[in-house]
Design a protein around this nucleic acid. Structure first.
Lengths: 229, 229
DNA sequence: TCCTGATATATTGGATCCAATATGCCAGAT
DNA sequence: ATCTGGCATATTGGATCCAATATATCAGGA
């Protein structure tokens, strides 16, 4: 995939998730091509790609719409991630950890631990947590050693609300949000514990539950439930 | 998506799953375009689509290869289907059945029951079973009422070995194969029973196990284990 | 007033062309 | 003999053109 094609795809993804293109809006190749200053060709390819990812849907026989997602869709996207990452965790528990992967997990858990030791949060720390979290999930999926599972998870992550870094943080409630991240960190630790002990079913269950942390745990800490940014 | 584009995609899918294009083989747009008698354009679109589905993989910076799948990949494809259909079944159990869906399930189970009553199998019956089986799985996924889950399952089913009608039947061992289908039918019945009783976890577990019936149950009945056609 | 049908327009799909560049090949040098 | 560099070729990506057709608009009739 070439530079221009790639840029069109990422730019469209961005415009959709930032809301510059509203759900339900109709897209035409010409219009987007002009907006982005390219020919219709890369736009055509991008539309197909995004439609396959589920961000666009066909509008009758001509053109595409920006897909609208209900709150139920958001929950289902999370549950799919939970199910698939749970599968990866179970596989890892059943097949055992290599020393490298074990060390990498320890390192990630350590970093998370240190980040949260002083029990406070700020915008910078939220960013750092996001990186640590991404590393945890990537390591898990990679270590499971199945490209087929990794692909399935990657495809699901194309739904912006389903990916593991879609965790909603209210930057005005950082004391309460701290507790959410603390809980997420503990869940990471428990997952690794389960994997290390070869407890596949437990690792699976923990990952499924962990998928909810981003959008369903807010009420535990007196936070507003907001499914949208 | 237009006629020609569609035909190129389905024809390529067929050529791949029939083995006319061997795993690892390199494809060029021009070559396929000539073979199929179309211009490069629809081939270009098809390559992208199939790559996104996971049937092709990029070869360096130029061109695509037919992806090779290991036996482990096959098992993982099945486990993904199990996890996702299990999720659908759990949702259905938790949300309850409408009368229409309940009736449709009864009908499907009845048809399966009748097909297998005389305890014999022939090629025609295998075809009929395939139809009944497809209807069961489609009904389940539809009834779960989540387009996001349905899409995820549909995407996984693009892997030829992962779809629910990829069940391997040895047409020289029809007496033994009968028992496999009988067991699958019983599993269908148990899944519906669990759903009707609102037993989400049980429905989930049953669907996950059921996903294995196609390729891992052969040894129960003294059948050769063959992951490839 | 609302429906139906015909015409006009917009938009897409496929083919072709051209430029960019990855890849392979061959020759020359070490 | 093997490696390196440059050249030739193959192949892709993007743009443009043309045909097909879906969609919209408008007029006429029920």
């Amino acid at each position: 995939m070439s530079q221009v094609s790639m840029q069109v795809i990422t730019e469209l993804r961005r415009m959709i998730s930032q809301g510059e293109l509203a759900p339900g809006e109709r897209l035409t190749e010409t219009q987007i091509a002009q907006t982005l200053g390219v020919s219709r060709m890369p736009v055509r390819l991008a539309f197909r790609t995004l439609a396959q990812e589920g961000l666009l849907q066909q509008a009758g026989k001509r053109g595409f719409l920006i897909r609208e997602f209900s709150e139920d869709d958001v929950i289902c996207g999370l549950e799919i991630r939970g199910a698939l990452e749970g599968l990866a965790a179970r596989r890892l528990a059943e097949r055992g950890l290599t020393d490298e992967v074990r060390a990498e997990f320890r390192h990630i858990l350590q970093d998370g631990e240190e980040l949260l030791t002083d029990q406070t949060l700020n915008d910078r720390k939220v960013e750092q947590w996001s990186a640590i979290n991404a590393r945890f999930h990537n390591t898990l999926v990679e270590a499971a050693g199945s490209p087929v599972i990794a692909d399935a998870i990657a495809r699901n992550n194309h739904l912006p609300f389903a990916s593991s870094d879609s965790i909603m943080i209210d930057h005005n409630e950082l004391e309460r949000e701290f507790r959410k991240l603390q809980l997420a960190q503990w869940q990471h630790q428990l997952v690794v514990q389960a994997i290390e002990h070869g407890e596949g079913a437990r690792a699976d269950a923990l990952m499924r539950e962990h998928a909810y942390v981003g959008v369903r745990y807010g009420s535990l800490f007196g936070l507003q439930v907001r499914l949208r940014p």
